[in-house]
Computed example of a mutant assay.
Amino acid sequence: MSDSRYEVRVENIFEGPMDLLVYLIHKNEVDIYDIPIAMITEQYLGYIDWMERMNVDVAGDFLLMAATLTQIKSRMLLPTHEIDGEDPEDPRLEITRPLLEYLRMKSAAEEIALRPVLGEDTFVRPKGAEEIRPDPEGGFIQVSLFELIDAFQRIIENLPGKHAVELDAERFSIQDKIAHIIEVLEEKGSVTFHELFSRDAGKEELIATFLALLEMGRLGLVRIAQHCQNGIIRLFYQ
């Protein structure tokens, strides 16, 4: 039993509101220049509500984006009028423009990260140096917070009986769950996302495990990645 309500803070660690928008656009396979604002707004608010009910601290910029999307959705419902013979500006451009700029900046940052690092890729390897071992984590890409949420929601939905319950992990200690995950990782080195969640566990215990996983990610104790080919999410002990 936990002494008090545990709150997981994800700001500045996991993705921000722009990342959630990009994720929803990719997930729904929609054109960034023709965003179905009503659908995206509804799904965005759904993720915010889910995180809040899970007691995951939602940063203020998420709520600001929610207000912006809601406002754009309202403007889309209003009748439009031509001004001096010109078509009125699409209200969605208020979000499309910063999204495009964000994607450009993110792409540039990723490109810089791939450049050779001085002393690591730049200089010739000394003669007689140890052979480089194959990377056991090769073929994996970083997992977003929202992909983790989707994966966990599928686990909850597949449980027998009603799953539309109040999400509350107060009955279980997040610290104890973190300790348990560390024990598993120390023994195995890595583990799949689904292996963490016992089939015999109740919903509250599963939620506590998920919150423990998020906290470990925030603390840098684990690296969470997804296999490029089979899509399996795996945790690696840092």
Rank of each mutant, 00 (worst) to 15 (best):
S2E: 11
S2L: 01
S4D: 14
R5G: 11
R5D: 06
Y6T: 08
E11H: 12
I13K: 15
F14A: 01
M18T: 08
D19Q: 14
V22C: 08
D31T: 04
D34K: 13
D34Y: 07
I35M: 03
M39W: 11
T41N: 06
E42D: 13
Q43W: 03
Q43D: 06
Y47R: 02
D49R: 09
W50L: 07
W50S: 06
M51K: 06
E52H: 09
R53A: 15
V56A: 02
A59D: 04
D61A: 13
D61L: 12
F62N: 00
L63M: 08
L63D: 02
T68N: 07
L69C: 03
T70P: 04
T70I: 09
Q71W: 13
I72N: 02
K73Q: 13
K73R: 11
S74H: 07
R75Q: 13
M76I: 11
P79C: 01
T80L: 03
H81K: 14
D87A: 11
D90C: 00
D90N: 04
L93H: 12
L93T: 12
E94Q: 05
L99M: 13
K106T: 10
K106N: 03
A108F: 06
A108M: 09
A109E: 15
R115K: 07
R115A: 09
P116A: 04
P116W: 00
V117P: 04
E120K: 12
D121A: 08
G128D: 00
E131M: 11
I132R: 12
D135E: 08
G138C: 14
G139D: 05
G139F: 11
Q142R: 11
S144Y: 02
L145E: 03
F146V: 03
I149S: 05
D150K: 08
F152G: 01
F152I: 07
Q153L: 07
Q153F: 02
I155N: 05
I156V: 13
E157H: 10
N158G: 06
G161C: 05
K162Q: 13
A164I: 13
V165C: 08
V165T: 10
L167T: 06
R171E: 12
F172M: 05
F172A: 06
S173V: 01
S173H: 02
I174P: 00
H180T: 11
I181V: 01
E183I: 15
E183W: 12
V184A: 05
L185Q: 04
E186Y: 09
H194A: 12
E195H: 14
E195D: 15
L196N: 10
L196D: 11
S198E: 13
R199K: 14
R199I: 10
R199L: 08
E205W: 06
A208I: 04
T209Q: 06
T209W: 00
F210P: 01
F210T: 02
A212H: 05
L214W: 07
E215W: 10
R218F: 08
L219A: 10
G220C: 05
G220F: 02
L221C: 03
R223C: 02
I224H: 04
A225Q: 14
Q226L: 11
C228R: 15
C228H: 15
N230S: 00
G231T: 01
G231W: 05
